[in-house]
Design a binder for these strands. Structure first.
Lengths: 229, 229
DNA sequence: GCTTCCATACTGTGATCACAGCTGCTATGA
DNA sequence: TCATAGCAGCTGTGATCACAGTATGGAAGC
């Protein structure tokens, strides 16, 4: 009996990935696709189409979309239909301003509280980013860049800020792809900011860390902005 | 025909309040009840109980709760059950720190961009707050205080920040009630901060506006914190 | 008296169906 | 030829049901 229970407990751990609800899977899948910019801005997301694509009924899709809508990642039209939000220059600027504020503060906190402790992880990620840039692997670049930033933000020790930042990235996510729609030098500029951030973390210098992150975001925004519309 | 169409168009406007979905109504009702602190922290929200209380089926309740969960206003337990989150001192402090940052900045923006234009509204709200305080009407106080703050935040012209602030209030909402669990002087302190805020708005002084809001939030936090646990 | 087991009730999940509103097309009329 | 009525196909909403997992209660065994 006891052995059986132990076995079940072990299996439980193994089951847990499969134990995720369909709703969860649909949510994650949509989120991933959106952040990769797979949907055109303004395009509709009919429940039945998404459900058919995912091989589920309408229900998990409805809940996943509503959750994404609550996070402002998808829009609810007056018709109550779901759609990918259209990004305007004004909204993107607003998003950028808010990111500067909160991600800058998170970076400052991270440097002060955990700075030297995460420097090694950041250096490893910087190397991966360099490799991805060299290989012109945009997907890898985006992925590692995101890891780099969130490695810092996680170290701030503020779950509330972390969640806010995640929702901001989710909203801006699809449009960050624009930064790499051609082979221009934007990523290289970013590398400089990352160096500055690493240095600030090593020193535990909060103000320098904030400045580095603020500059990084500003660079990206300046790059993306003229490409809109 | 044309007249008929016009009539329908007119009726459409009238219908719109009734056209809200059940899900929307359940969502609003739950939100309102939560912000008034009607649910004990940690208490469960079984779908069927809520549905019975609202007189609907499970579906609208499920979607409303999931939306609230996305906003961190309710918690999803490992059992996938919904519950009112338990607030710890650490989380409340985190929430407070984030509020200082973003609400302070929103106040600064509001003062610079629209300061004098909203001063009259703020003065009117201040008077209502005074009246509510004098009458010991806690519900009215809470309501007008919220209006006062969001009057400022709306004037910042940043929909992104406004939404973030709303989610922060929703998370902290139930615990703000603690500030008035007895007849102590906390609201009076708050009034001083409001005066400072109004003055800053009249002058269009961003820094002063930020300081006033930061002080207001800090006061409230300092008041609530020891009452927790 | 304490532990163990089993039945029952209750949890959220997800599929299916009926329905109302809207959109766009087509056929019919002037 | 053009306007209009009506039909067909979409849309999301919400109720109902079946189901699997979990907690809880009491009863039977040690």
């Amino acid at each position: 009996m006891l052995a059986e229970k132990r076995l079940l407990a072990d299996l439980e751990g193994l089951n847990s990935p499969g134990r995720e609800t369909l709703q969860e899977r649909v949510y994650q899948e949509l989120k991933r696709a959106m952040m990769q910019g797979r949907f055109a801005p303004g395009s509709a997301l009919p429940l039945r189409s998404v459900a058919a694509a995912m091989g589920t009924s309408l229900m998990p899709v409805r809940e996943a979309l509503r959750q994404l809508a609550a996070e402002r990642a998808v829009e609810v039209l007056p018709n109550r239909a779901f759609a990918i939000p259209k990004m305007t220059r004004a909204i993107l600027a607003d998003l950028g301003r808010t990111r500067l504020l909160i991600e800058g503060e998170a970076a400052r906190l991270a440097a002060v509280r955990q700075g030297p402790r995460i420097a090694d992880q950041l250096i490893a990620l910087r190397d991966k980013i360099s490799a991805a840039t060299g290989a012109h692997d945009r997907a890898a670049y985006r992925s590692y860049n995101q890891e780099f930033h969130f490695c810092i933000y996680s170290a701030a020790g503020s779950p509330v800020m972390l969640h806010v930042i995640e929702t901001l990235w989710l909203q801006a996510g699809p449009y960050l792809n624009l930064s790499f729609s051609d082979a221009s030098g934007s990523p290289i500029v970013s590398q400089i900011r990352h160096e500055e951030a690493i240095e600030a973390m090593q020193k535990g210098d909060g103000e320098a860390a904030r400045d580095a992150i603020v500059a990084d975001i500003s660079d990206a925004m300046e790059w993306i902005m003229p490409q809109l519309e």
